[in-house]
Each structure stands twice: as structure tokens, then as C-alpha cells.
Design a protein around this nucleic acid. Structure first.
Lengths: 189, 189
DNA sequence: AGCCGATCACTACGGGCGTAGTAAATCAAC
DNA sequence: GTTGATTTACTACGCCCGTAGTGATCGGCT
């Protein structure tokens, strides 16, 4: 059972991902969390404090998600990696759409307010090293570089698909080719 | 000399790219355009109308920018393309940073509000076909696919660089490798 | 010159926002 | 079981927002 603050922050992420930055207010968070008015104010005095806490919560959830994924799927080839990534992208665009939108909304926010960058950068670095290790494990000769390229590609793809969605069946071939091309040194197959 | 409405919309894009969606209000636009209070209201009655007009203006400016670029640089090889792209990315992250941030803010907005998608999608499609033709001209055997992959990659790269900037000198090698790998059929050199 | 339509500058107002401050409730410790 | 401190629920206030409405100003047409 998440704590009260976590419930509020999860509600805030949902508001952010379904109604945008403009709608992210104390009152909207209270309502989304089905809590009495003023609850969000008690924990996060100012709006800036709320946004900072949302970033922290988001990072924590992201980390937990990767670790869960890491436990389930462990691709052993480029095609396996592509399949896993396709699954991730499909989930990000479908059931988790709000979370994905919130993610990019936070990126834009961080581009505007440098004090939000640190936690996001730490999280990104963690993901990078973790994914690098996985890439190395399946044969990549330059895992850091290939990992960075792949992450850039996937985020660009996601952003575009969010804004003007294409047919979902087109995702797999696109991602498969990108993986093979951007990570040419992993064991293909 | 841009018309009065264009001046207002350019100011709106600047507000969006430097202060975010939340700050995009009629009054803020008036101030940024150094026009008397109420000017933005006269042209764009509601906030939604303002945002829609900003999208339209943005698309028009983008189109003009490509056409200008097309007149100047005409790469003839993968390395030339990479150099041109690196120049574009540097400009997008430096002098044009606000415009770039505004761009992604609008993407997020379009992810939330489907009625904004059409103009952005049209613009993206135009860019795609134009860039595809250029890719084909320098030898690409599958220009549409390679173009899509490249655009996805560049937007992801830009978004990441905006949120947690890295050293600018790292851009060129990253982009060069990505171009070579994602567009393997263009004449290298 | 004189009118007329459109554009512009400015004001007015209701609503919702962020924020601060206060009562109530919960819990720990003794 | 009472006390005291922390957490929770709620209220109050001032500010700024989006929006509507009203004169003033300008240009084209006859």
C-alpha cells in the first residue's frame, strides 16, 4: 500500500499525463487522488515543491519498473532485444500512455527549469549503465555508445507516436531494423 | 515585416519555449510582443484558439526554415548529411533553444489534445517526403524508412540534450555514426 | 468630405489558482 | 489516561487568469 504522499504523487502523474502541465494544481491532484481538498497542499506547500516531488516519484517508479522487467525478460540476441523493446513501446503507447506523456512533459519542464534536471539525469544514467551491461552481455562491442543511440531513437519514436499515432503493427519492423542497425555488434539472430 | 498577428504568435512561441505551457497566457503574449494588453485577446478569443494559432504559425515557420536550408546546403554523401544535421542540432540546442523547447511542448500538447495533431502531422509528412527525396538523391535505396528512423533518432537526441545537456563536441560523432548506421545505403564518404 | 466597416486599445468581471493559516484528529510515550 | 506533538482536514484570502464587452481609431469607398 503506497503511502499517502505516494498516492497523491501518483495521482499527480496521472493528471500530468492526461490533462497536461497546466492542469497540474493542488486541487486537481486532491480530486484525482479522491482525497479532501487541501491534502496536496499539506505535503507540498508550493507548486514547485509538488513538481519536484513528482519528478522524484517518477524516477523511483521508473527504476522499479526496469528492475521488474529485468527479472522477467532477458533477451539473448538482437531479435530478442527488439521484441522486448517492441513490447515496451506498445505498453508505453497503450495502457501506460498517460505515464509516457507525463514523462515527456517532465522532460520539457526540466528543459525549462534546470533544478529539475539532476534527478532525471541520475535516473537516465542509471538506466544507461544498466542497459549497457545488458547490451554487453549479448555481445555488443561498444555498449555505451549503442545504448545511447538506441535510447535516443526509442524516445524519439515514442514522442512521435504519441503526437501522431501510426498503425501499431508498423512498430515491430521499425524497432527491429533500428536495433540491428544501431547495435551492429550484438549477436544477431 | 510580419503582420501583427504573426508578431503575437512569434512572441507566444518564445513564451512557450522559455517559460512553458503554464505561462502561455494572453497577457504574457501581449507583454512579450510589447503590445498593449488585450491585443492577443482580440485576435485569439480563447486560449484554445491561441494555442491552435501557435501551432499553425509554428508549422509555417518550420516549412520556411527547411526551404531556406534546402537552398543553402545540399549534402552529397553520408558525411555531408551528418555534418548538415549536426549543424542543425547545434543551432536547435543553442541560438534556437526556445524554439526547440516550444516544439516539444507542442508535441506533448498534441498528445493530449487530438485536435492539434492534424497540422503537426501534415507538417511532419511534408518534412518526411522532402527529406526522403534528398536521401534518395544521395543514393538511399529505402529513403522513406531511413528517413523516418533518422528523424525519430534526431528528435530523441534533441529532447535528451535539452533536458540534460552534454558536451557539444560529442554531438558530431554521435550523429555521424547514427547517419551511417541508420542510412546504410546512402553513398558514404 | 463624409460615412462605414474593420481593427485596435482598454476595461470589467467572475472564477479558479497558489498559498497561508487554523481547527480537528491521530498517535506515542509515559 | 492525559499530554503534547505531528499529521490531517478544511477555510480564507488575494492575485491573476480567461473571457466578454465598449469606445476609439484608422482606411477605403463614393
Amino acid at each position: 500500500m503506497p503511502s499517502r504522499q505516494e498516492q497523491l504523487l501518483d495521482a499527480a502523474i496521472d493528471v500530468l499525463g492526461t490533462q497536461g502541465t497546466r492542469a497540474l494544481t493542488h486541487r486537481a491532484v486532491d480530486a484525482a487522488a479522491s482525497m479532501p481538498a487541501g491534502s496536496a497542499t499539506n505535503y507540498f506547500k508550493t507548486r514547485d515543491a509538488l513538481v519536484s516531488a513528482v519528478v522524484a516519484r517518477f524516477v523511483a517508479r521508473d527504476r522499479a519498473a526496469w528492475q521488474a522487467i529485468a527479472g522477467f525478460v532477458q533477451p539473448t540476441s538482437a531479435d530478442g532485444l527488439a521484441a522486448a523493446l517492441t513490447g515496451y513501446v506498445r505498453r508505453a503507447l497503450g495502457p501506460e500512455r498517460a505515464v509516457t506523456v507525463a514523462r515527456y512533459a517532465l522532460f520539457v519542464e526540466a528543459a525549462l527549469r534546470p533544478e529539475l534536471r539532476a534527478p532525471l539525469a541520475v535516473s537516465a544514467q542509471e538506466l544507461r549503465t544498466w542497459a549497457s551491461d545488458r547490451l554487453r552481455a549479448i555481445g555488443s562491442a561498444d555498449p555505451d555508445r549503442e545504448c545511447a543511440a538506441l535510447l535516443d531513437y526509442v524516445d524519439g519514436l515514442l514522442l512521435h507516436q504519441l503526437s501522431f499515432p501510426g498503425p501499431p503493427e508498423a512498430l515491430e519492423p521499425m524497432i527491429t531494423r533500428a536495433v540491428h542497425e544501431l547495435c551492429p555488434t550484438v549477436t544477431s539472430g
